[in-house]
């Protein structure tokens, strides 16, 4: 317990360090002293610097933290609920479900009339549609998981739902005008940088809701580590836990995907990476650890994506996959077997 508390505190420190590093990197070179001055509301040499820091880089860093921690936590929730080490919001088709929701709003809106689309196309609509999309896919995967006990089958079913939703998205794109299609494609690359403070606030509200709900599941998630039969024998209310976990994951993965696009591997890889450092399996300790780990990894990925010293920003989704896939392969080869 003592050791893990130290690890958590250390994690927070590293997180702050990476956050400052993330803010200090970008196409415009701003001295560290001026960055701190902007953050602390002191005098800054150039007003544009303050603007870049406060209106662009800071919301982006906060988005990265919310996205990374939220996705990593939903990965942990999925892995424990499905008792499957390979579960995660992307693998189980949650991100595809959210994509479908977003596509319905961006593409569907443009097909079914201009007036309605401008009315519907507010950020709230996007987030709610995306959350509903992921919750729907999750419920479908869960319903089939009662019929098939085999974990591999479950993952394949997740993949099938992903192709189903992407097929619907293809049909929608086929009938969409070029601008909305472009808008959708850019969204699907994933980006952390385009959020206004108001949008960050909406994301934060969903994030808090998701976290709050999952905190109430911590005890039953621990008993689920023994399997559903043991969990029931320990007095867990399975139906309620399942519903709450799905709701929390849907809110987290849905809202994050709505704003930042479908981001792969964070949800799958971070819980396993965290388990290499934190030896406890108690979700009370794993929860903050995984959240901090996800935030740190996302900040790193974002720092790489903006290619320090250049004007180019790479799609964040590509970076997380480039880092995440080798990490999962390395873990599988080294540990021979992954546990949830």
């Amino acid at each position: 317990m003592q050791k893990n508390t130290i690890f958590l505190l250390l994690g927070v420190l590293i997180l702050l360090l990476f956050m400052i590093l993330n803010i200090s990197l970008g196409s415009v070179n701003i001295p560290l002293k001026e960055i701190m001055a902007s953050l602390l509301d002191a005098d800054v040499e150039k007003e544009t610097w303050r603007y870049i820091i406060l209106e662009y880089r800071l919301p982006k860093a906060i988005t990265a933290i919310l996205v990374g921690s939220g996705l990593a936590l939903s990965g942990l929730l999925m892995q424990t609920l499905f008792r499957n080490p390979l579960a995660g919001p992307y693998v189980l088709g949650l991100s595809s479900g959210a994509s479908l929701g977003v596509a319905m709003v961006i593409l569907g809106g443009s097909i079914f009339g201009g007036v309605i689309s401008s009315f519907f196309f507010s950020k709230w609509t996007l987030v709610i549609a995306a959350s509903l999309g992921s919750i729907l896919v999750l419920l479908a995967v869960l319903a089939t998981s009662f019929r098939v006990k085999d974990t591999m089958t479950l993952l394949i079913i997740g993949l099938m739902f992903a192709s189903l939703t992407s097929a619907v998205v293809s049909i929608l794109s086929y009938f969409s005008p070029a601008e909305s299609l472009q808008q959708y494609v850019f969204w699907s690359f994933g980006s952390l940088g385009n959020l206004s403070w108001q949008e960050v606030l909406i994301l934060l509200i969903f994030w808090c809701l998701g976290i709050l709900i999952s905190i109430f599941c911590i005890k039953n998630l621990n008993s689920l580590l023994l399997g559903e039969k043991y969990a029931v024998s320990l007095g867990a209310n399975l139906k309620k836990t399942r519903l709450l976990v799905i709701l929390a994951t849907g809110l987290l993965a849905g809202s994050i995907t709505a704003f930042a696009g479908p981001i792969a591997f964070i949800g799958l890889a971070v819980p396993h990476l965290t388990r290499q450092i934190i030896t406890k399996n108690n979700h009370l300790i794993l929860f903050p650890a995984v959240a901090i780990g996800g935030a740190i990894l996302m900040l790193i990925c974002d720092s790489i994506a903006q290619l320090p010293g250049s004007n180019t920003t790479l799609p964040i989704n590509a970076i997380t996959s480039l880092i995440g896939a080798p990490v999962v392969i390395w873990l599988l080869v080294r540990k021979k077997k992954l546990y949830f």
Binding site: R83, K219, L225, L226, L234, A236, K280, N281
Partner: peptide, 20 residues
Amino acid sequence: DTQFSHNLNVEELVALGRQP
């Protein structure tokens, strides 16, 4: 059924017995 998490150590697993 041995489908429980083998990541658990002995103490953690026994501790889960105290959940009620």
